[in-house]
Design a protein around this nucleic acid. Sequence first.
DNA 1: CGAAAGATTGAATTTGGTCAAAACAAGTGG
DNA 2: CCACTTGTTTTGACCAAATTCAATCTTTCG
Lengths: 242, 242
Amino acid sequence: MLAMAFTTTADVEDHAPASAHNVAVERDLLGERLGRGAIRTLEAKEHLFCEGDVASHVYRVEVGHICIYRMMPDGRRQVVDFAYPGDMIGLGALGDHADSAQAMERTIVRTMPIATLRELAQSDTRLGLKLYEALSRELMAARELLFTVSQRTAAERVAAFLLALCRRSERRGEAANEIVLPMTRMDIADFLGLTIETVSRTLTKLRHDGVIDLEQCILVTILKPEALAQLAQGGGEGRHRN
Amino acid sequence: MLAMAFTTTADVEDHAPASAHNVAVERDLLGERLGRGAIRTLEAKEHLFCEGDVASHVYRVEVGHICIYRMMPDGRRQVVDFAYPGDMIGLGALGDHADSAQAMERTIVRTMPIATLRELAQSDTRLGLKLYEALSRELMAARELLFTVSQRTAAERVAAFLLALCRRSERRGEAANEIVLPMTRMDIADFLGLTIETVSRTLTKLRHDGVIDLEQCILVTILKPEALAQLAQGGGEGRHRN
DNA sequence: CGAAAGATTGAATTTGGTCAAAACAAGTGG
DNA sequence: CCACTTGTTTTGACCAAATTCAATCTTTCG
């Protein structure tokens, strides 16, 4: 269950074992149909949809990365999820979108009308179940994030974040200890409920402690995975245990 | 959408207009079957299920209140939801429970095996859709809470919490400005990511400011709903707007 | 009633935020 | 190729909000 941490924007395909390649076998109806779906290309910073828009489609990221977030009138922002290639977006939307989705770089998505999705789900109960499970996984991820943000210290949050990215890499069969951050410090900060300064400081501290290496501020090398894992738990003496 | 704040543990019935009474008309299949389902009574502090248990049933609270939470090994706790009469519990569970459900007082629930739920959902596609929507609403609630905990100050969190309870009362046709807190300060604290002391202090401050009244520390009277709403937004000059 | 659990209040401490400046990186145009 | 601009990241000094620790007060319940 812990392995699920942050594993949000559930891919509807079964969670692939490490052996599966990026080009997953599209054996189910949804995958097939999406494969034939319209393609849309987004420039960096372009929005796929915004808070309040009518939820007309679901999407699957093909290339690039998308940041999903919500804003408060006064400018405070909560990043809810980062969608990687293979991830579905917009599954949970009912009526209007409750959040915005913005490309973090040039990004390609496949699109599919919600109406079509509904039809498919009706004709194939197994698909309906899959969707349900995908949503359920999103819920769990959201709660995991809630937990992290609510209960952990800054250091623990950053550690947990890095670990989650590691696991994501592993799951898609990439190098597990070298991760490229497609998001800015600002995105990380708004995801973890911190400021950019704190994120930066924390990363620097991890570097000085020899836990990670940071060359271009976009490339993180995990030197001591155990230390990181330890930190992500209450290992560094966390906070109020009441 | 904002009105959804904290409206978690979605009731599967349509969101009833304010006129609807507690004894909602059970027109759909699920309601009927649950109405005929087995009853289980829990004493205060008794668990309905625990983290890691196999998810065998879904439940609907009939009388009393249930607290849903997750724990870290070191004792830190995150309350994820409070379930009121009419609320469903366990909808999102896949395989094992990711959280624990504990009665906050003597509580009665109706139970229904997940297998039965699956069958029902297969025979009635509309029910499947309803379940999906219920889960989706839970997801939104989780994200709303995430937002609150992550971005708001202590005062704002408590204000938002009280307001959410107000709305809940309203929705079930109860007095909107007198709310009884079925949960302890500890529960509130673990829900909002604060300490009991901070919760207590914040409530005291609200009382001194004449925004609420607090007689038995369990009964909150909202004296200035607008002020509370204002606070819940960034009205009291919130935090880092970057 | 009296014990135990829960809630409040106060004082000291700490974490993380704010503000401000400097360092870097990437891209543009001369 | 270099100066120049712009945007992001890092670093430091200071400050405020929330936690910790500790003591007291209330409520609940046997």
